[in-house]
Simulated scan of single mutants.
Amino acid sequence: MAKILILANNDVGLFKFRKELIEELVKENEVFISLPFGDYIPKLQELGCKFINTPVSRKGTNPITDLKLLLNYRKIIKNTRPDVVLTYTIKPNVYGGIACKMNSVPFLANITGLGTAVENGGILQKITLLMYKISLKKANCVFFQNKENQQFLKDKLAIKNHRLLPGSGVNLLHFSFMEYPPPDVIRFLFIARVMKEKGIDQYLDAAEYIKRKYPDTEFHILGALEGSYEIKLKEMQAKGIIQYHGLQSDVRKFHKFSHCTVHPTYYPEGMSNVLLESSSCGRPVITTNRSGCREIVNEGVNGYFVEQENSQDLIKKIEAFLRLNHEKKIQMGLAGRKKVEEEFDRQIVVDAYINKINSIIQKTNLT
């Protein structure tokens, strides 16, 4: 029985986007997960994982805190003696990768997005790229979620062992195709952390304009508050412009009554799970024309693109969607479902990981 160690920064993402991989791994391996405690940890333990409580500051840049994380990872690797380590997100990739290098342990990194530090340039970008160069040099494989991220780090760091994945993929059974709702009231969904970079300002601008011009519309928001939006959301909800539902553990019940998902993000993510899940349910999407989003949309076929941080363009595309007849909206949803079935099945991701892990373990056993 081989030992697999997974380093991540939060339990929600690990459970929702890696569950199928973990279910496969625990069949024949001892699986350890190292991350901060959260509500989904018991569910991960039920799958068969052994939990190691590990504080990870997702946004902080304190060098002392980061050094502690590196030392913690090194200690965890020495104690668990894994055959393979899997890392997700920036800090586990960087400090987990360095710890693996120091302990001569094979590891697979997953670039789930470059993050604002890299995208915004400046000194933080240089520091982050240097850390990536040190950590990823010995990676057995670096998995990328979109071509733009892959090309950028290939050019900057000369990474040799890498592979492109269809993001985290989507569980086509869990997010099954849903019958399209009737056209009496057209409902839009925003599913994301309520923060500036996710395009919440543009969504609220559009909701205010569209609701006034087209009364038979509804604008719903799902997601945790991050930033000073609480007062604004309460005011707009009191006026009947939006409906805020907070963080939801299962968004499928909202897809059942929605007609379109609006995702005007400009956050540097690897591949938008919001768009994958919405498309899998058979819902058209309106999203930003940027890496991590554009791969999921064929313009005018299963959705529309909008310019980044452009409320007027978002209003224009929502109006274009509203002008479509009911049958055309249904066809857009069907096209989205077909696209994810053909290109974004999560099983593609699971198979890629299992093949790499088996290859590493077999090579280790031969030596």
Rank of each mutant, 00 (worst) to 15 (best):
E148A: 11
I134L: 12
I286D: 05
S311M: 04
L172D: 04
S249V: 15
N273W: 07
I64W: 02
K137L: 11
R193N: 12
P63M: 02
D345G: 14
H326D: 13
G38Y: 10
R163Q: 15
Q312V: 00
D205P: 15
G246V: 01
E20K: 13
C141W: 08
P63A: 02
I98T: 04
M332Y: 08
E342D: 15
N365T: 09
L164V: 06
Q243G: 03
F51I: 03
L204K: 05
R212Y: 08
D201L: 10
L164P: 04
F188G: 04
D83M: 01
K160Q: 15
F15D: 10
L322P: 01
K147L: 08
Q202N: 08
K154P: 00
P42S: 06
P182H: 15
L275A: 03
I22H: 09
N9T: 09
R58P: 00
I354Q: 04
A8E: 08
K154V: 11
R323C: 12
T116A: 11
I76L: 01
K338H: 14
Q312P: 02
E23N: 14
N103Q: 06
S278Q: 04
K363A: 15
Y203H: 03
K19P: 10
R294D: 02
M332S: 07
L69Y: 00
D39V: 11
P36A: 05
T265K: 02
V26Q: 05
L136D: 05
K91T: 01
S135D: 04
D83A: 05
V31I: 05
G60V: 00
Y214A: 08
T89L: 06
Q145M: 13
R193P: 07
N93V: 08
V56A: 01
I6M: 08
I241R: 06
S258M: 07
P36M: 06
F254M: 03
P82K: 02
L173S: 14
S176E: 14
G270V: 06
F257V: 14
F37E: 04
V285W: 03
I111V: 13
R74H: 03
T65K: 08
V297W: 11
V301E: 13
T65L: 02
T288V: 08
V274S: 10
D184Y: 14
Q237C: 03
P82G: 05
F51L: 01
K196Q: 15
E299M: 06
S280V: 07
I76Q: 01
A320Y: 07
G169K: 11
Y244K: 00
L173M: 11
L366W: 10
N365E: 15
S228W: 01
A99I: 06
D11V: 00
F257C: 08
N149T: 00
P92K: 04
L108M: 07
V285C: 12
L322N: 09
T54G: 00
K196L: 09
N355E: 15
